[in-house]
């Protein structure tokens, strides 16, 4: 089948396994009655189920939720938070500020891009090292394709240990969640990469926040979707405080805070 014939087979009622609501009666969520099956559920339980179609154990959910807590930084200078703050400063709505800030979190130097990229690398690296290849060789080959190994070397405080890592390890220990093969490998990569690069490139939280769910059976795409709400709690106060300041008084910029280095003045005629 090709061309419009494919489209024609998708006309009519939309076939779905995801769910449907029957107003006044009930809602089906991935094959379950939402109000019966999830009556006493935590939101993160449903959220993870929405992504994976699986229900995790309470201690696993506790760790995954802890990661969201530990990376909620209400610092309005952080670029994605700044979008939320600016929306407040310009007297826009909370939904818009939050929506755009979430979209902005799909950045190249932090957030979703390093996360999904390091997830993809760790999966491949684990397969290859388990098959007997040396980790150093895997890393060298990766650096041959991509200049940098995302997930190692933080854009700020580059040389320090990411403060979120020890607290997450504590939580895992407290809850009794074991360090799995992906997280173990992520730490090994940190050691070998520093040797290969000849300088310390500490592991960032990106590598950790995907290793843990991957050890619970998540794919990189599932890790990426799991992390979508992770910064929200840090964004909200930035929006709110900007609302508390006078309008336009968040990130105030004089004309001379703009340094122009283009062509000199010229006339259009």
């Amino acid at each position: 089948m090709s061309g419009p014939d494919i489209l024609k087979t998708f006309e009519g009622p939309m076939r779905t396994k995801v769910g449907a609501c029957f107003p006044g009666e009930r809602t089906v969520f991935r094959g379950y009655d939402l109000h019966a099956e999830f009556k006493h559920a935590e939101w993160i339980d449903l959220y993870i189920f929405s992504i994976t179609g699986r229900r995790l154990t309470p201690i696993q959910l506790k760790v995954l939720q802890g990661i969201w807590v530990y990376t909620s930084y209400p610092d309005p200078r952080l670029w994605n938070n700044r979008v939320a703050a600016m929306a407040g400063s310009a007297r826009g709505t909370g939904a818009q500020g939050l929506g755009a800030a979430i979209a902005t979190s799909e950045a190249a130097i932090y957030g979703r891009q390093p996360e999904i990229t390091v997830a993809d690398f760790l999966i491949r690296a684990l397969k290859r090292t388990e098959a007997g290849e040396s980790l150093e060789q895997v890393i060298r080959q990766e650096l041959g394709i991509h200049k940098r190994l995302l997930g190692y070397g933080r854009p700020v405080a580059t040389l320090d240990v990411d403060e979120r890592i020890p607290v997450t390890l504590d939580l895992m220990q407290h809850e009794g969640v074991e360090i799995g093969p992906h997280l173990k490998l992520a730490f090994e990569v940190e050691r070998v990469l520093s040797e290969v690069a000849g300088r310390p490139l500490p592991m960032t939280y990106s590598a950790m926040v995907v290793s843990i769910p991957m050890d619970m059976g998540f794919s990189p795409l599932e890790c990426y979707l799991y992390m979508q709400p992770c910064f929200i709690a840090g964004m909200i106060p930035c929006y709110l405080e900007a609302l508390e300041r006078p309008e336009g008084a968040t990130f105030v910029m004089r004309c001379d805070r703009l340094e122009y280095d283009g062509p000199a003045h010229r006339s259009w005629d």
Partner: peptide
């Protein structure tokens, strides 16, 4: 609004284990 064809409807009781 379009219409759906729900392929895994557990029915009104909904508590059936899957």
């Amino acid at each position: 609004f379009f219409s759906l064809d729900l392929e895994n409807d557990p029915g009104v009781t909904g508590l059936k284990e899957k």
